[in-house]
């Protein structure tokens, strides 16, 4: 059933596509980390309209599938605007926006766990809003939620095959292409599965290490 020489023959191609998978996942996650933070901060704006706009954006993005958003960004946006991005850039942008809204919830839980007295002390010391955020609130809000953020990185990795819908040749699409040429499905899909498994294991290990470090740091 399993043909080792065939597996060895297709491995380099699959690994090359896997680089796309990793690249898109990491870049998408990085973008989501930034977008999530911006959303979480503006969701606490003193201006009601700003809060409302942010809440609507988050609600909208979260209640539509990633696939629809990717199609929109890749196929519709260039028709509506002068903007047009490569498949990779669109994938990163889509992942960043989509998971940014989820990460904003993670940030929110971290921010809400910072006692109100911290905001008040900062105000009594006359710190600016920006200084309060970056020197007082976020350094306390973010470390405890880093493991939760890491879990979203794993989710994003597993979501990357969706990007094949906008022609990004990530590892699963590459496996499918290989299979359609050779009519051998077993090896390519198995290898793709193993690659995902290995990456997830490595990331899970990283997250649980992080969890332990944070627990130690924030216990007592």
């Amino acid at each position: 059933m399993w043909d080792w020489s065939y597996a060895a023959e297709i491995l380099p191609g699959l690994l090359k596509a896997f680089r796309n998978t990793i690249g898109a996942a990491l870049a998408g996650f990085g973008l989501a980390v930034v977008i999530g933070l911006v959303l979480a901060m503006f969701a606490r704006s003193r201006w009601g309209p700003v809060r409302w706009v942010i809440r609507s954006i988050v609600e909208f993005i979260r209640s539509t599938p990633l696939l629809v958003q990717l199609f929109f960004l890749y196929y519709s946006l260039p028709m509506l605007t002068p903007l047009s991005f490569s498949a990779f850039a669109t994938g990163v942008l889509g992942l960043g926006l989509h998971y940014g809204t989820y990460l904003s919830e993670v940030y929110r839980s971290g921010i809400e766990a910072v006692p109100r007295g911290q905001w008040e002390a900062a105000k009594a010391l006359n710190l600016s809003r920006v200084k309060t955020w970056f020197s007082v609130i976020l350094p306390q809000a973010i470390p405890p939620v880093i493991p939760m953020m890491g879990n979203y990185l794993i989710v994003i990795v597993k979501e990357t095959p969706t990007l094949s819908a906008i022609t990004l040749v990530e590892v699963l699409l590459s496996a499918k292409n290989t299979a359609s040429i050779t009519y051998r499905v077993f090896e390519p899909y198995t290898i793709a599965g193993i690659l995902f498994l290995l990456l997830s294991l490595v990331l899970s290990f990283g997250v649980s290490r992080m969890e332990k470090i944070m627990k130690r740091r924030y216990a007592g």
Partner: peptide
Amino acid sequence: QHFNLFPHMSVIDNVTLAPRSV
């Protein structure tokens, strides 16, 4: 009443933060 010190900063950083920034 409950101090509200910044727990992630040393004593000296707690005291110098506002003079420097404000």
